Computed example of a mutant assay.
Amino acid sequence: MEDTTENVDVESGNTSDPEEDNCSDNDFEPSKLGTKEYWEDAYQKELETFTDIGDVGEIWFGEGSMSRVLRWMDKANIPENAAILDIGTGNGAFLVELAKHGYRNLTGIDYSSASVELARTILHTEGLTDVTVKEMDFLNCHGDLKGFDVCIDKGTFDAISLNPDNSKEGKKMYLKVLKDALKDKGFFAVTSCNWTKEQLLDRFSEGFDFVQELPTTSFQFGGKTGNSVTALIFKRVH
């Protein structure tokens, strides 16, 4: 939402002026989207639907969100054997696309057991049996995530920011775990519908260099142009 005057929480409809509230610890009102219970229930329903009719369910931010990251990976010459982590893998749709794109060292994690079961089931149906999917809370992985060349987040940092229980500490822990998970000069691709470019640049200013912004669909309102989704690439630096 660069260049627009308001930042909108898609769940609650709340707005904040980034000039007055740039990267504060109370950026958004708490939401059920920030709770494990919400996602466990959502993915349990998607798992039942996939079992019944083979529908993989919702692709968070749409297929375009995967395509833009894949195009960047092509241009950045990310090798096929790069260690890639999908943070908050959900139904595993991005893992499927990465595997079909030729990437061979893939790991997806999610704190929802239903998500993990759904992702594994979909990957197995696609014949992709060498992709690793783990039930793991990114904020409580206790140093188990190390050595990744690329970490990808489509909405997980958003959800952590909406958690009713101490999102301030969650955002700080997210940054710490992300730093530990990435190799030096490893890449972080983040897609957000709650954070502006400026806010994300501020959040990830410590330990990361900004690489580029990926193009997303723009809109016009009140004479200003903005984006409903922000997608940025960072590089880990020590």
Score class of each variant (00 low, 15 high):
Asp3Ser: 12
Thr5Cys: 11
Glu6Lys: 13
Asn7Ala: 15
Val8Thr: 10
Ser12Ile: 12
Asn14Tyr: 09
Ser16Val: 15
Pro18Ile: 13
Asn22Gln: 14
Asn26Val: 03
Glu29Pro: 01
Pro30His: 07
Lys32Val: 06
Leu33Val: 12
Gly34Leu: 12
Glu40His: 03
Ala42Thr: 14
Tyr43Asn: 04
Gln44Glu: 12
Gln44Pro: 05
Leu47Phe: 14
Glu48Gly: 02
Glu48Tyr: 05
Thr49Phe: 06
Phe50Cys: 11
Phe50Thr: 11
Thr51Val: 13
Ile53Val: 15
Ile53Lys: 15
Asp55Pro: 02
Ile59Trp: 07
Ile59Arg: 05
Trp60Met: 10
Trp60Gly: 07
Trp60Asp: 02
Glu63Cys: 11
Met66Ser: 08
Ser67Gly: 09
Arg68Asp: 01
Leu70Glu: 00
Met73Arg: 09
Asp74Thr: 04
Ala76Gln: 07
Ile78Gly: 01
Glu80His: 13
Ala82His: 03
Ala82Pro: 01
Ala83Trp: 06
Leu85Gly: 00
Asp86His: 08
Asp86Tyr: 10
Asp86Leu: 10
Gly88Leu: 06
Ala93Tyr: 02
Ala93Ser: 14
Phe94Arg: 06
Phe94Ser: 04
Leu98Gly: 00
Tyr103Ser: 03
Asn105Arg: 11
Gly108Met: 10
Gly108Val: 10
Gly108Thr: 12
Gly108Trp: 11
Ile109Thr: 00
Asp110Gln: 04
Ser112Leu: 13
Ser113Cys: 08
Ala114Phe: 00
Val116Trp: 02
Leu118Met: 00
Ala119Asn: 04
Ala119Leu: 10
Ile122Phe: 06
Ile122Tyr: 05
Thr125Trp: 11
Gly127Trp: 03
Val131Asn: 03
Thr132Asp: 14
Val133Leu: 07
Glu135Pro: 06
Met136Gln: 07
Phe138Leu: 10
Val150Lys: 00
Ile152Tyr: 02
Gly155Phe: 01
Gly155Ala: 05
Thr156Glu: 02
Thr156Ala: 04
Asp158Pro: 06
Asp158Lys: 07
Asp158Phe: 08
Asn163Ser: 09
Asn163Arg: 01
Asp165Val: 11
Gly170Thr: 10
Lys172His: 14
Lys172Trp: 09
Leu175Trp: 00
Lys179Arg: 15
Lys179Leu: 14
Asp180Ala: 14
Gly186Thr: 04
Phe187Gly: 00
Phe188Tyr: 13
Ser192Arg: 04
Thr196Gly: 11
Lys197Cys: 05
Leu201Gly: 10
Arg203Pro: 01
Ser205Trp: 06
Glu206Phe: 04
Gly207Leu: 06
Asp209His: 13
Glu213Trp: 04
Leu214Met: 12
Gln220Cys: 08
Gly222Phe: 05
Val229Cys: 08
Ala231Val: 10
Leu232Trp: 01
Ile233Ala: 00
Phe234Asp: 00
Lys235Ser: 13
His238Gln: 12
His238Ala: 13
